[in-house]
Design a protein around this nucleic acid. Structure first.
Lengths: 183, 183
DNA sequence: CTTCTGGCTATGGTCTCCACTAGTCAGAGT
DNA sequence: ACTCTGACTAGTGGAGACCATAGCCAGAAG
């Protein structure tokens, strides 16, 4: 039952604190935020559309062309992203054109920035051709960006100093004895 | 054609530097590292398996049970993650058991840590129930983790100070004039 | 009014993801 | 040798992701 000896294993993974160490009790679906995130942006097409929105695309045809996705997929994805509060539609009109919608990231959508940076950063490591490709940089000093993991107290936290635990252990332990699983 | 006036638009997206501002020229597939990353870990099941590896799961049945995925999917995913150099297999034997493989993250796999943190962080914002769920913290001070975007010179970079550009503009511009040209 | 264009939408087909239910197979225990 | 358990593997089927083609519809141009 007790996995305490696991604490001594190589620090290549997250240390497990408290009741989380009995990991098999917490299989319940919605509890890891990762799954929730993946439900909204877990598909390739969703990420590509979001990428183009970050890169400044706003119009339907721009997004379709630049992602390389079919129009039907882009339309469906934009609909879903709108429903999920990640993009907003904003009607506008160019001279001599009918009114149409442009798409912009909401606050929630802009919150995806660290994910974008982390994906770019990791993809860079896989690379073969380091000459091609795009690069995210600081506008002022033009130095490339990377995602740093820090704690709320401002410490830089490498993987071997990170840990995982249940947020509200008492609440969760209480549920565990109950027959019902909410959600 | 020229999108220079886009520079003055609200800084809710990445500023586009240099030739990248002519975005439609750079539709070419493999250039954004995001797509490369998504090719390897772009599926829900891959991310869930990686999550459990970070959470300390190593054995096949642990990974299957804790991700909630079917055994067939976990087996397939582990095979793919192994082929892609994200996990390593390491034979071992418990007393009274046959030899089997355990799965551990490689260096490349551990490089996914920022992505994991960013996904958890973003999923947290979507939340309704802030009492349940897991939390990543600094082992020493127990403060929660978040991904901070910084440039190589150590500046913290919010979205409105970030920019995107082509890595090697001369190289890329040369390719553009070649017959290989698309669209 | 008619035509034309741009911004979607609808249909159909393929492919991948995934769950579910077996089945295989190595080797420890007896 | 025989059984049993755990680690996979194979087959089936459904749902969703994606592409390609074609269609629809608002409004500007003529």
């Amino acid at each position: 039952m007790n996995h305490d000896e696991g604490q001594a294993e190589s620090a290549d993974v997250l240390e497990r604190l408290g009741a989380f160490s009995e990991r098999d009790e917490w299989t319940a679906k919605g509890w890891c935020r990762i799954e929730r995130s993946l439900d909204l942006i877990g598909t390739r097409s969703a990420m590509l559309v979001v990428r183009e929105l970050f890169y400044g695309g706003t119009k339907f045809d721009e997004l379709a062309r630049r992602t390389g996705l079919s129009e039907a997929v882009v339309a469906g994805r934009l609909k879903q992203l709108y429903a999920d509060g990640i993009v907003d539609r904003r009607p506008y009109q160019e001279a001599g054109k009918r009114t149409r919608d442009e798409y912009v990231l909401t606050e929630r959508g802009r919150g995806l920035f660290p994910i974008i940076v982390a994906l770019v950063q990791w993809g860079e490591l896989l690379g073969d051709d380091h000459r091609t490709g795009v690069e995210l940089v600081h506008r002022d000093c033009e130095a490339p960006l990377s995602a740093h993991i820090m704690c709320a107290n401002g410490h830089e936290v490498p993987l071997d100093q990170a840990a995982v635990r249940l947020k509200d252990e008492a609440y969760v332990t209480a549920m565990r004895t109950r027959p019902h699983g909410s959600r």
